[in-house]
């Protein structure tokens, strides 16, 4: 029963990893950009949630109303003012600029919020659980998982059923020709980053309610998100959910064997899957 429980917890944790991954997958799919500062932005969103929660004295989940638009705006400006200048066939500039950004963010957060671990208190939600037989399922992890599914379903709908989604896909296919259709590439890219950071905001708030975080927590979140993306298959949003679940379950089982093995187990499963399924479990079928 201990094992079933740790697998179940792993599945639910996979929802959080899918949230880390979705924003990463999104911008890679649209503009082939890999944002090394992605994890640090998740942590920034968590700190932002903390500030909003304590200054307005509201529930952490209510802070989403402020944090999501704030992060989206930050994403738009970040892309429009900084990252658009690095977009070319050369992968080095965006990589190194976001790497520099990552170092800056970590140290600015360290200066502002200190190195102390923080956590957001969700009150009764923290301990609320549903009992099914001998299993106790936390309401918060369950909510987190449901939100992950909703976010991915929402992104999927946006991509395939709206004009902006069509613009994203067209720009991803051929940015030059998309511009001839009256799409401003810089604006489309900036909207994509805004959307990515809106998802990052949700991921950050749930991270902050589930576990403690500090200014140096970012890189590990980036790596988890990245692993979920690769396991699931590049450019497949539902794939990232499965990737997240596999990663979460691997970590859960690893932790059950030995607490020191939690992260290592996740990384090893990722490396093994990379060896046997280099295109991920659910690669996007080329049309």
């Amino acid at each position: 029963m201990v094992w079933v429980n740790s697998i179940l917890q792993g599945v639910l944790l996979g929802g959080l990893y899918a949230l880390f991954a979705a924003g990463l997958s999104l911008i890679f799919g649209i503009m082939r950009l890999v944002n090394i500062a992605h994890g640090d932005l998740i942590v920034l969103a968590a700190f932002l949630g903390l500030v909003v929660t304590s200054s307005l004295d509201i529930h952490p989940l209510a802070s989403l109303v402020v944090v999501v638009p704030a992060m989206a705006l930050l994403g738009y400006l970040l892309q429009y003012l900084l990252l658009n200048r690095t977009m070319s066939d050369d992968i080095l500039p965006p990589l190194l600029v976001t790497f520099g950004l990552s170092v800056i963010l970590q140290n600015v957060m360290l200066e502002t919020f200190s190195a102390d671990p923080q956590k957001m208190n969700t009150g009764a939600l923290d301990t609320a659980s549903i009992t099914v037989g001998a299993l106790h399922i936390g309401v918060l992890p369950l909510l987190m998982f449901a939100v992950a599914i909703a976010v991915i379903a929402g992104l999927q709908w946006l991509f395939y059923h709206t004009a902006i989604g069509r613009a994203f896909r067209a720009t991803s296919d051929n940015a030059d020709i998309a511009q001839l259709m009256g799409l401003n590439k810089k604006h489309v890219f900036s909207l994509a980053m805004a959307l990515s950071l809106a998802v990052v905001a949700i991921a950050g708030i749930f991270l902050g309610t589930k576990t403690s975080f500090d200014p140096s927590s970012g890189p590990a979140r980036l790596i988890f998100g990245f692993e979920a993306v690769i396991i699931g298959g590049l450019g497949n949003l539902w794939g990232t959910l499965f990737g997240g679940i596999i990663l979460g379950v691997a970590q859960g089982i690893g932790a059950q064997i030995h607490p020191g093995l939690q992260q290592l187990a996740g990384h090893l499963v990722f490396l093994i899957l990379l060896a046997i399924r280099p295109n991920g479990l659910f690669p996007r079928v080329a049309h």
């Binding site: 200048r85 500039p93 190194l96 950004l101 970590q106 140290n107 600015v108």
Partner: peptide, 13 residues
């Protein structure tokens, strides 16, 4: 470290 990161970004741009 912030200065170092910013310098690298400015140089890259």
């Amino acid at each position: 470290l912030v200065i170092l990161g910013a310098t690298a970004i400015v140089i890259m741009l």
